[in-house]
């Protein structure tokens, strides 16, 4: 019995079954019953057993609906947006205190070291593997594991160095870009000075972390590698600097540049960002030419200078305090 027969009960009472039309109706139904269908290869494959009926085959779709490369899309930000973005970033950078810088640097280094140490502890425990072997073999395996963890920790430290270096380069690039927009040389110098301070703070934080024993002792690394503590630099930043949003470069980056956390090396090394910066730089130069008479921009820049000077003072005080500690 076919589906057609079961659901077609109404047909026996339909006007199509009247005597004058019965022949036509019968012919049409016979036509449908006789009709053959040449299934497409895709349908044949589906009928052969490959039935994607759970969710359906996901169609191949582009990652983005926007056309063109990501580089071009990012470089295509509106000029006003780029100007506002960099002005806000520089203002925040200038106001960055030493505490915030240190916390950022610490978070970056801890993330790198913690990541390496976490990887080291992800494998099967040497002790577990050695339960069925001799004590000697156990010691050898523990030593090997310790050496491996140490090597990975060193690699992580190197990665942290690279990240900090890249972050510094990025900050300098941003500052350079902002300096182009500055109405006078003093403001430009202040901006670049602020960027230099931030870089120094980052490097200082990394040096401090290098001095700790966390990196070199795999056992300590095992104990201290809570993923909550080390793998989320943004969280660490939040803990330290939530009270002062302006001081957090990580947040400034997220809010204003649409990029991910600065701790990620991929973002720092992303050629798209470089191109974006270049394009933005070009736009910024145009803007400077266009908006020399803009009082608002000048006022903002003046504020930036003030904030930058304040930030420098803070840095000096805080760094002195840190050294004393």
């Amino acid at each position: 019995m076919s589906l057609a027969g079961d659901v077609g009960g109404e047909m026996s009472r339909s006007p199509f079954d009247e005597p004058d039309l019965a022949a036509l109706t019968r012919e049409l139904r016979q036509l449908a019953a006789r009709a053959e269908h040449r299934a497409s290869p895709e349908l044949s494959a589906m009928l052969a057993g490959h039935l994607p009926i759970d969710k359906g085959d996901l169609p191949v779709t582009a990652a983005s609906n926007a056309h063109g490369s990501a580089i071009r899309q990012r470089a295509g930000l509106p000029t006003r947006r780029i100007r506002d973005m960099h002005a806000a970033l520089i203002a925040k950078l200038a106001g960055l205190s030493a505490v915030a810088k240190m916390s950022l640097a610490g978070a970056v280094a801890a993330a790198a070291v913690g990541g390496g140490a976490t990887v080291a502890t992800m494998g099967p425990s040497p002790a577990e593997e050695a339960t069925s072997v001799s004590e000697e073999e156990l010691e050898n395996e523990v030593e090997e594991a310790a050496e491996t963890a140490e090597a990975e920790a060193e690699a992580a430290v190197e990665a942290a160095d690279a990240e900090v270096e890249a972050e510094c380069e990025r900050l300098e690039d941003e500052a350079e870009l902002a300096a182009v927009e500055a109405p006078d040389d003093e403001t430009a110098d202040a901006i670049e000075q602020a960027a230099d301070d931030a870089c120094e703070a980052l490097e200082a934080g990394l040096d401090d972390d290098d001095d700790t024993d966390d990196v070199e002792d795999p056992a300590d690394a095992d104990d201290d590698t809570d993923t909550d503590d080390v793998e989320d630099p943004a969280e660490a930043d939040d803990d330290d600097t939530d009270t002062d949003d302006v001081e957090d470069p990580a947040e400034a980056d997220d809010d204003d540049t649409d990029t991910d956390e600065p701790a990620e090396a991929d973002d720092v090394d992303d050629p798209a960002e470089t191109d974006d910066t270049d394009a933005a730089e070009d736009d910024a130069e145009d803007d400077v030419a266009e908006e020399d008479d803009d009082d608002t921009v000048a006022d903002d820049a003046a504020q930036d200078v003030t904030v930058a000077e304040d930030g420098d003072d803070d840095d000096t005080d805080d760094e002195s305090a840190a050294e004393t500690d």
Binding site: A4, L28, L31, A32, A35, L47, G49
Partner: peptide, 25 residues
């Protein structure tokens, strides 16, 4: 067929392919 039985899917196809192809033709 909804639960993934291949025989049921084939059965639905066999029952409906004639009417569908005739309708669209």
């Amino acid at each position: 067929a909804r639960s993934g039985e291949a025989w049921a899917v084939a059965r639905l196809y066999e029952d409906l392919k004639g009417p569908v192809v005739t309708f669209v033709r």
